[in-house]
Computed example of a mutant assay.
Amino acid sequence: MVPSSALRTPWLRTFQPVASPRARIVCFPHAGGTASFFRTWHPAMPEGWEVSAVRYPGREERIIDPLIGDMTELAEQIADALAPHLGTPTAFFGHSMGASVAHEVAALLAARDATKTPVALFVSGRGAPHRLKRVANGDLTDEQLLATVHGLGGPGAELLRDPELQELVLPPIRSDYELLDAYAAGPKAPAVSIPITAYYGESDPGPSAEDVRAWSELTTAPFEARSFTGGHFFLVDHEVEVIGDFRRRLGALL
């Protein structure tokens, strides 16, 4: 039976619903990513902590839903889905594109009601919004786009070589990159009064350490950055360490 407090919305996959959770973690996937990327997180959490991941449209269970290519629209729809459930202490964790989406959603929620915001924001593999530059990945040919994504590594990257799977994964990847191109050149959410922790890979070809540490300018609350060996998907190789650090920091806020 699904607990009455469970998050019932197509925007979220809750991996193991918890009745009256002590804390909720909402995870935001990377460009082209899916909620399944965070499927291993719940077993690593303390009892009473519930883990959900955002289900962007156009993939997995939402494969027939129209893709969203605008950050404002995406953030607004996610915020609408989350707002009724923020009576429970909630932390956001976003990787790569997900970090930007998480920040936009957190700022939007704060603007609507300062008493119903996440207790913490964790960003991973992403430079601060005001340090972003348009890289025009959305303008690449299919072959160039696949090569770019494959070069970043990450789980399932080798599957992109399968022509049949490419038909499924290319549209959301391209849509997400076009969204990020527009977002880099457009307006960004303001700073938030929420603690921010930023994680990054020391060999990530994307954001520099300075870009990541610039997240400190996006909060009036405490900030800290931590690096790990590895590239853009350092999170996969260092999952145990990242989750351990995440648990410690969030636990101190509850």
Results as ranks from 00 to 15, higher is better:
N137M: 13
A147M: 12
E239G: 05
T90N: 03
H85D: 06
A107S: 14
D204F: 02
P43T: 05
A128Y: 03
G58M: 10
F122G: 01
D70K: 04
A189T: 01
P66Y: 03
A53H: 00
V135S: 09
D245T: 15
W11A: 01
P46Q: 10
A31L: 03
R39C: 08
A110T: 03
R8Q: 14
Y183T: 02
P21Q: 04
L218I: 12
P187Q: 12
L218N: 14
D237Q: 15
Q16L: 11
R213G: 10
V26S: 04
K188D: 06
R174K: 07
P66Q: 11
D245K: 06
E167Q: 15
S100T: 08
G186L: 02
E50D: 09
R247W: 00
A44R: 10
E143S: 10
R59T: 00
V51N: 01
A214V: 09
P187S: 13
A99V: 10
T148K: 14
L82M: 12
E241G: 05
P46M: 11
M45C: 08
G156H: 10
A81F: 01
H238M: 03
T34Q: 13
L109A: 07
V119I: 12
L82W: 02
I173T: 08
R131N: 05
D80V: 07
G48N: 09
K133S: 13
A35L: 13
T115Q: 12
A31N: 04
G87T: 14
C27G: 00
I64W: 05
A209I: 15
E60N: 12
V242Q: 02
D142V: 13
I243D: 08
R13D: 08
A185H: 00
T148N: 15
G244I: 11
P46E: 12
W49E: 00
A252D: 15
V105E: 09
L218M: 15
E210Y: 08
A110N: 09
L108N: 05
E76M: 05
Y199H: 06
G127K: 05
G251R: 01
V169C: 05
F246R: 03
A102S: 05
S5H: 08
A147K: 13
V119T: 03
G32M: 03
M97Q: 12
I64C: 12
S20P: 06
D80C: 10
L170I: 07
E76G: 05
G69E: 07
G58K: 07
L82E: 07
R59W: 07
V51H: 01
G244R: 04
H30T: 11
L159F: 12
T9F: 01
A198N: 04
P89K: 03
A110L: 04
I25D: 00
L254N: 07
A128M: 00
L109P: 00
A102R: 01
T117G: 02
D181V: 06
L160N: 11
A191I: 08
L7S: 04
D80G: 09
T40Y: 09
L218T: 15
F223Y: 13
Y177Q: 09
L86G: 03
P57A: 05
V192A: 01
Q77V: 00
L165I: 15
W215I: 08
I194M: 03
P190Q: 10
F37V: 10
R13T: 14
L253A: 06
P195V: 08
